[in-house]
Design a protein around this nucleic acid. Sequence first.
DNA 1: CTCAATTGAATTGTGCGCAATATAAATTCT
DNA 2: AGAATTTATATTGCGCACAATTCAATTGAG
Lengths: 159, 159
Amino acid sequence: MDSMGIMARKPMAADQALRLDNQICFAVYSTAHAFNRVYKPLLDRLGLTYPQYLVMLALWERDDVPVKDLGERLFLDSGTLTPLLKRLEAAQLIRRTRSTEDERVVLIALTPQGHALREKAKAVPQSILAASDCTVGELLAMKDEIVALRDRLNAALGE
Amino acid sequence: MDSMGIMARKPMAADQALRLDNQICFAVYSTAHAFNRVYKPLLDRLGLTYPQYLVMLALWERDDVPVKDLGERLFLDSGTLTPLLKRLEAAQLIRRTRSTEDERVVLIALTPQGHALREKAKAVPQSILAASDCTVGELLAMKDEIVALRDRLNAALGE
DNA sequence: CTCAATTGAATTGTGCGCAATATAAATTCT
DNA sequence: AGAATTTATATTGCGCACAATTCAATTGAG
């Protein structure tokens, strides 16, 4: 339909914008899967899936927290977290208890095994760093850019 | 590179490395979800999910291709693609036919409706660009960095 | 030419991710 | 206090992702 001329001012022709290779979202999407595949053999040894590992990371920083709290830190809702947390409970890594102050709240706390797993997990970031073939500095810089993008996307959702 | 000397490669303390906020993988993971949420209302109008949209992007560039071919372009396997493609077929956007030369191969071709949908999809990248609140140049630069990271991760898997 | 190995898809089972809905507890508003 | 609203979690249903397995078609070695 549209040929040249009027399109000259546009930042990118629509045809180009639809190319798979030009999509930053596909880059992010496929990189997330690549991370998942690199993590898998490492996390198998801990008996965790990648999302479960993220939950454990969050809990190692602060536990005895409501599900809601975890959800906000991880950008996940109860539909995802409830079954995941039940599996972590079945694996004896966490305990789920109703708060006595507010009976709607379920507090998530680490068990001794859950705390202990942290020591085994300490080796994981090293292996990921090696697989990424980047320096810590490069990764941290890229992380900051990506987080800034994520936060702008999330801000756009709120409007 | 490495003008900062040996410090640039010094690994960070294991405690720091386990912090959720320091994980580039979490940045990528949570950004992928943020993209998904931004795309959802746009793709709902096309009747597509985000992975289905990626498949259509790939097919708009080149169709009449084996499932295997699509899988390599999208980094997905038949376990993911087979049911997804059946849904696209049910939606009349593609046709799945066995190759006559090699009966193992299923060729994926766009229907007229599948081709036509491309026009409606042209508006999507603009909306994403707006939500990202970045310039095209910034996004393309970031994309290249992320793709380079993805390719190094995938290379590490092959070893 | 035969039979073992390989290849391309499909199938099965598990675990996210999220929308929509449900439910019960807490809060707010008359 | 009682009703309406809000809040925190749980449930259901659908669609990915991916490992593991199956199966038929093709290729390759002897």
